[in-house]
């Protein structure tokens, strides 16, 4: 059996090999890859390059483009206070959104039991992630409504003064983030529930017999095994926080007076409402560079895993 001849390429039944047969393993990957690659290049890769280019221009979207070098960036960084607000708000989103892996883990630990109806409960806990951010935004606008919102009904029930979350310049972003945490926590929870399902049961039992406290077990045994879930939770949360747009557009439209804007929203506003394409593109480029740091981190880890 040692020297059995195995053809590395298929032998056609007809007996002679056509050009196609001889080269098919070289042709096939191109055929399979090209539709996706072409579409992706046209609609994703090329536009990125083009956005960088547009950001160096003064352009209203209709007339000719005027090259102004780094003018847009200079204006953004030195003269635009809304830009500063947007960056600060983005940082708030980024930092506070990191609560969702924590809440998600807590919820997953709470739900990881085997009692009657648990599957149903888990599904319903996951619910907020399935519905559109537009609906989440509407639901929370209604929830926060100062005149009739449930939040104020509850606060008054507790004997506290009512508040108007979405018209406070200082706190509005926090209230929107709270709404955003709702679906994001659900997502992280499902990642952790799957992770917990696959935790090595023997190790857990051994530690339990050794009398390890729950806290020690979580810290020393469970969390290390949950690392893939944590990694994924962090990645999706970072991306989600920097992409925050829908909730802001629905709940406040960036207001009051631009106080809840973020880079993603500011870009949209500058380009489509102020007709400043070049300026908007510059905001997008900055957001892109900001995000690239995380993408690079994620990719290097992923490629290392492949090796």
């Amino acid at each position: 059996m040692t020297d059995t001849f195995l053809p590395s390429r298929p032998v056609p039944r007809s007996g002679f090999r056509t050009w196609f047969d001889r080269h098919q393993t070289r042709i096939a990957p191109w055929v399979f890859l090209s539709p996706a690659l072409v579409l992706f290049a046209v609609y994703v890769i090329y536009p990125i390059v083009q956005s960088f280019w547009i950001s160096l221009h003064d352009w209203d979207g209709l007339g000719p483009m005027e090259f102004i070098g780094l003018g847009n960036y200079v204006e953004l960084l030195l003269y635009d206070f809304d830009f500063e607000t947007a960056v600060i708000n983005n940082v708030k989103w980024l930092v506070l959104f990191m609560l969702s892996p924590v809440f998600g883990l807590a919820t997953a630990l709470f739900l990881n039991q085997n009692v009657w109806g648990i599957r149903f409960v888990k599904s319903l806990f996951f619910f907020p992630f399935v519905i559109s951010q537009v609906v989440v935004g509407l639901v929370f606008t209604w929830f926060y409504d100062p005149a009739n919102g449930l939040l104020n009904v509850i606060l008054e029930g507790l004997g506290l003064p009512g508040i108007s979350p979405l018209s406070s310049e200082t706190y509005v972003t926090f209230w929107i983030i709270a709404a955003g945490l709702w679906p994001q926590t659900a997502y992280c929870m499902i990642l952790y529930l799957t992770g917990l399902n696959n935790v090595d049961a023997e190790q857990v039992e051994a530690a339990r017999i050794d009398g390890a406290s729950s806290w020690t077990m979580l810290h020393k045994i469970i969390l290390p095994q949950l690392w893939p879930a944590t990694f994924l939770a962090i990645v999706v949360t970072v991306i989600g926080s920097l992409r925050s747009f829908d909730l802001i557009a629905i709940m406040t439209n960036g207001g009051p007076w631009g106080s809840s804007t973020v880079l993603a929203f500011k870009m949209y506003e500058e380009a489509l409402f102020n007709y400043r394409m070049g300026y908007g593109a510059a905001v997008a480029v900055i957001l892109f560079l900001f995000m690239s740091v995380f993408i690079a981190w994620f990719l290097t880890r992923l490629v290392r895993q492949e090796r």
């Binding site: 994703v44 083009q50 908007g280």
Partner: peptide, 10 residues
Amino acid sequence: FIPFQILMIP
């Protein structure tokens, strides 16, 4: 993973 906004105008 890129932000949508970088694609928006083009």
